[in-house]
Structure formats: structure tokens, C-alpha cells
Computed example of a mutant assay.
Amino acid sequence: MKRTLAALSVATCLASPVLAQSSVTIYGVLDAPVEYVNRVARGAPTIVNNQLVSQPGGKRFAMSGAGLSSPRWGLRGQEDLGSGLSAVFVLEGGFGVDSGVSTSSRLFGRQAYVGLKSPYGRLTFGRQYTSIFEGLSNFTPTRYAVLYEPIAWQLGVNYRSDNTVKYLGTFGALTAAAHYTFGAGTGVLGSTALAGGGSGESPGNSRDNSGYGGSLTYLGGKFGATLVYDEWRPAITAGQSGTVRKFGGAVSYEIGPVKTSAGYRWNRSSFANGNTFVRDDYWWAGFSYHVTPPLSLSLAYYYADVKEARLNATAPAVEPANPWQVTFIADYDLSKRTDVYLTTAYARNAGLNFDSSPISFATGYFPTAGQKGMYGVAVGVRHKF
């Protein structure tokens, strides 16, 4: 009887399919800073007779919804399909630790993609970061810190795009990225709403709100370098798309506990009628220094040379004062997953993070009437899981 049961057990095992190895990981970041800003308006300026009209405001002392990182949670999964091929997915949503409220109407507004991974790279489909984001991520002095780095000015407000097919491959010290979006899902260009909320994929108007780009990055030992390109075609009126083009490069070098980085980004954004929305040259430089294993200091400088700008497609061209900003961060690791920090910045000729019309006042540092400079300082605690 025992031999019969053993034989049946062996037969059952042989008949059963081999289950692929798979894993799903829950991850996230909680970041809660308390911030002081010396002068900020209560809301974004409005356009009246092709002029920006600022709202009143004053000092702000409050808990902010994001600090060095944007609070988020997500699911990351992988299934081994055999022969070096894997299925992968990421679902990631953002929220504010100060209130627990989602930062958008989307459940997974930060990332939502599925794809395949092999030794030759990863091909993914869905809402994800563009190639310019990937290419410059190791060359920004404060690593895309929400407080305070001009991320939207540097990368464009479309740096996270819907309906995107993306390739990412790493081969030794070289990483290549390329993407195409059928409709970025970014809803505005400056202060003007885009057709269909920027979703694109409109029958007969496949160019509307689409875009593409690429990056090539070298990270070998102490030295790093990258080249990036990004193009987006926002359409205010269906069938009439403008063009936003960016290209740039950056380098980095590490000397013991010190890492330095510097970069340049060229931009020309045009309306469908050919008028320039913004033409600027953007520069940055900075360094980080690990004073001790748990304590790091970072200092960064950002500068934009704005050649020409318009508030809308028919407004007269102007040459506004060039914005610049200095940012400092002191970060102390209490453990591998928890740190405390102090960060401060001063911006001139724009709100902090270069908050202004070209980036649709996306960061919430609205300047008041006649304001030339803005100062902010924050202390916070961050935990990663």
C-alpha cells in the first residue's frame, strides 16, 4: 500500500507543470518636512490682457506634502519565464504624509507599467518616466530632491508620460534608454489647457501630444557622462500640435567622499503657429560630500538664460530676467532606511524650483507682485520601506 501511494505521488509530481518563480514587493517612501517660506502667493497668477497678475500672499510656515522625496507606495513584481526572460510590472501612487490624501486623481499616478526583461534590456508599456529623466538621474546635484530642485524646468512637465513604450538596457558601464509616447497625458502648456487633457491618441491626429526621446549614459568607476534628447508635441487645438525639444549632457566625477556634477540643457518650445513659447539655456553644477558615513552635505547652483518667452500663442515676446537658485542639503542617516535632514534654498527672478509660467506654476511656489527673490528652509524625517 505504501509503495502504491509513493508511486502515485511521484506520478503526480511528474505530471504537474513546473511553476515559474515569481515575486511581488511592496515598497514606498514616507517623507514629512516642516517648511518656512519667506513670501509666497496664495495661488497661481492669472493672465489678464497678456499680463500675469499675481495674487496676494505672505510668509508660510507649514508641514509640506513632500520633502527630499515625494511620498509614495507601490507594488513591484517579476516572474521568471525561463531562458533569461522575465515579466515585470510596477504600480506606484503618490500621497501626502501631511494629510494622507492622494497627490492626484489617479490611483497609480506616478508609474503604472508592464513589460518583459531579458539580458538584452527591458521593454515596458504604460505610464513611466521618459528617457531624459533616466539619463540625468545620476547627474543632478540633489538627485531630484522635491525640496529644492527645478526638476520640471530641467526635464519638462512631461517627464512622466502616459501611453509610453520604453526600452532600457544596461551593458557594463553603458546604459541606453529610448521611449515613445502616444499621448503624454500632460494637460497644460504654460497656462493653456491642451486638447483632450493632453491624452493624445485622437483618431486622425496621431501626432497630438505624442513624443519620443533617448539617452546614453556612461558610469564607469569615478567618471560618468550622459547625453539626452526629448521631444514632446503638445496640441492646444486638436490637429495643431506645437513642439517642445530639449537636448543636453552632463558629467560627474568622484574623488573619495566627494562627488561633483555639472550639466547643460538646451530648450526650444513652440506653439502650433510657430511662435516661441520658451527658448532657454539651462546650466547646473554642484557637489555632495560624505563628511562621515551617516552625514552628507550637498550644494547646488542652477541658472537659466531665457532668450525669449510668451504667455500664450498670440502674446508678444518678452525676455524676462534670468532665474537662478542656490540649494543646500544636510542629510543624516539614522539607519539604512531612515534619515533626518535640513534643506534650504534661495531663488531669484522666479519662485523656488523656478516656479513660473513656463512650467505652469507646477510646484506651488507662486511669486507675489513685484517679488524678485524667495527663500525657503525645511527640516524633515524620511523613511523608506
Rank of each mutant, 00 (worst) to 15 (best):
G185C: 04
P203K: 06
S252K: 12
L227E: 07
F247S: 10
A309F: 14
A313P: 01
G204L: 10
G200A: 08
T292D: 11
G197C: 09
A285G: 15
E254P: 00
I255E: 04
V251K: 03
E201F: 12
P234Y: 01
A313R: 07
L219H: 03
A193C: 02
S241I: 02
N312H: 10
L219I: 01
H290G: 08
T276H: 06
A285Q: 10
V244K: 07
S269L: 07
S269I: 09
L216W: 06
R245G: 07
I236K: 03
T243A: 14
A184F: 06
A262Y: 02
L216E: 10
V188F: 12
T260Q: 02
Y212E: 06
D281H: 15
L194T: 10
R310I: 04
S210N: 12
Y289E: 00
W266G: 01
Y302D: 13
V244N: 14
G239K: 13
G220S: 13
N267C: 13
L194H: 08
P293I: 03
V291Y: 14
A272E: 11
D230T: 12
G248Q: 07
G204P: 09
A193N: 14
S298I: 00
L216N: 05
A304P: 11
S288C: 03
G221I: 01
G249M: 07
S288P: 02
S252P: 06
S215V: 08
H290I: 00
P294F: 06
R207Q: 13
G196P: 11
S252V: 01
